[in-house]
Design a protein around this nucleic acid. Sequence first.
DNA 1: AACACCGTACAGAGCGCTCTCCCGCCGGCC
DNA 2: GGCCGGCGGGAGAGCGCTCTGTACGGTGTT
Lengths: 346, 346
Amino acid sequence: MSNQAPTLEDVAREAGVSRATVSRVVNGVRNVDPAIQELVHRAIERTGYAPNRAARSLVTRRAETIALVVSGAGDAPEEARGAFAARAFADPFFGRVVSGVVGFLSPRSMHPVLMFAESAEDRREVLTYLRQGRADGALVVSTHADDPLPALLADAKLPAVLFARPARPVPLSCVDLDHRDGGRLAAEHLLARGCRRPATVAGPLAVAASQERLAGFRDTLARRGHAHVPVAEGGFTLDSGIAAMERLLAEHPDVDGVFAANDLMAQGICQLLQERGRRVPEDVAVIGFDDSGIALACRPPLTTVRQPVEQMAAEMARLLDEHIRGARTAPASVVFDPELIVRETA
Amino acid sequence: MSNQAPTLEDVAREAGVSRATVSRVVNGVRNVDPAIQELVHRAIERTGYAPNRAARSLVTRRAETIALVVSGAGDAPEEARGAFAARAFADPFFGRVVSGVVGFLSPRSMHPVLMFAESAEDRREVLTYLRQGRADGALVVSTHADDPLPALLADAKLPAVLFARPARPVPLSCVDLDHRDGGRLAAEHLLARGCRRPATVAGPLAVAASQERLAGFRDTLARRGHAHVPVAEGGFTLDSGIAAMERLLAEHPDVDGVFAANDLMAQGICQLLQERGRRVPEDVAVIGFDDSGIALACRPPLTTVRQPVEQMAAEMARLLDEHIRGARTAPASVVFDPELIVRETA
DNA sequence: AACACCGTACAGAGCGCTCTCCCGCCGGCC
DNA sequence: GGCCGGCGGGAGAGCGCTCTGTACGGTGTT
């Protein structure tokens, strides 16, 4: 009964067996006599034993931990990571990613380490963390297309899975959405409800997903006779959505349908429209993207293109787990399909 | 140049010194000849050495990791933790907590492990995690007043710091806000702008903070002649805020000022009011609580009582760090002051 | 009855690191 | 010139665990 945590040795002594036998019972391997198993379990109970993970990791070479890194492409070494974190979580998107990841990890008694990589220094930190064996692999959610982290990870041969295909190909597994098809869905719905002058507030065009959504939207409209579609570029934030819509309205006051590249911008657009005295959807129809919590919080509730973020995140975790266990060696690419959720704004 | 990660031994051989010397250089302890330091650094560079954390933790008995646990009081063992995570992050509050914690941890090369504890099983999981030495302590953010986790942590003598004082006293450090004063601030502002019939949509009354905010609001009004103030209880979510306001409006159609216990509910209230054709703030003034990102996203921007969540979270991390290092033994309680942020809704 | 064989438990060798000894060397002092 | 103190460096003992190799009964075969 010392104040030191009990070790395998203590349990073994208590149960009158060897260290190895206790280890077998704890790890549930090999054939151990049920009577002895019971004996050991009782000894564990009595001593309040909890296996020391550092010791186990030292020999198994596994941390049984994965890192969830939210990555930017910044170079400002002085930028406070806290601020970056706050910005990231302002979009419900990240909460959904966390939700999906935790959904997969939790039943396996694993928990993600949260990291934010905004500067070169931060990226080195992520690499070091993994190389030190503190985590077995990384789940990377990039906010920029030219994020250097995926390539660094691949070069170091560290297990990693990406959310969204990177701009330049990297030999890592990734999970993505068919964004182009999402754009198509939005275009067809706008057309179907009779829009004559559709426009779009795109996401940052440096992001591949933004370009794809835009391309899908444009192509579909072009094929239906809308050669020129007004486009304003936003930054996925509420403010940028409002600003983009203001520009759109200034040049094309007669738009009657807008496809926003995410819900946050769609929300801003709805607000602006209503302030300007335009009814949504009667005067202008609005379609968002993501189907995040915001879509329901919006007044009226947002019609949007659903991205199954939770499922995608869970799939990332599953792929990473396979890579870590060595069950998968070649990079895989899993693409999910978007779905149109019709509510009231279009 | 094997495919095994280089060890201290490898670096020592490469530099022509002993393992102990390399260790000293790596950890920056004692006086090592600058020339030898240089030698070692170059050897580290050449071998690409990264110290194995498991091995270090094994002897130092430190994981250099802390757990950030979002805790409910649920008992449903089957509830998916992923869903709980999603719900938690729907409120920008948690993003701000993460932001503050990361702000403190990041410069120290530490990163939080994210855990969600909604069931008894989850709570056992948190305890086990700490007892296994995978994390040195826990930062606990409870969503319910009767959360059993703090007491469990205290009983197990595991280092932990709480966000908000628990309902029944627990010998753990905690960080809190003077909620009562926040309620007072809201009441006085409403009175100052000439409200005659103030009301409030409180948070869940099972949460101590909700009660305090309500008490501060009520007491201040009572002292100024408003003996009876209509109260509706909400659940801190957007929907519950709307529902509560509907009840309030049904019974007291003439309210001209509402204090909501958080911004999310205030947002819902503004939406409802506008749908009902009431102008905010001309017909009904609205004050929120938190000053989260929502406050600015609201149309019009929300007047609110600011809670410095990021600072509070950083302080939690600082306190926990002190407890872990043994620099602090007695539990401390740090109370922050709220601040009224006047925008356009009141 | 002798042998092989399998299932069960133990002994012991590390995993990579830290840290306490301990020793050798150099300079200062009487 | 001998002694001592202090500094720079090395040797080695673990930290708590896993896992291989090995011993030891008990059963089945010839």
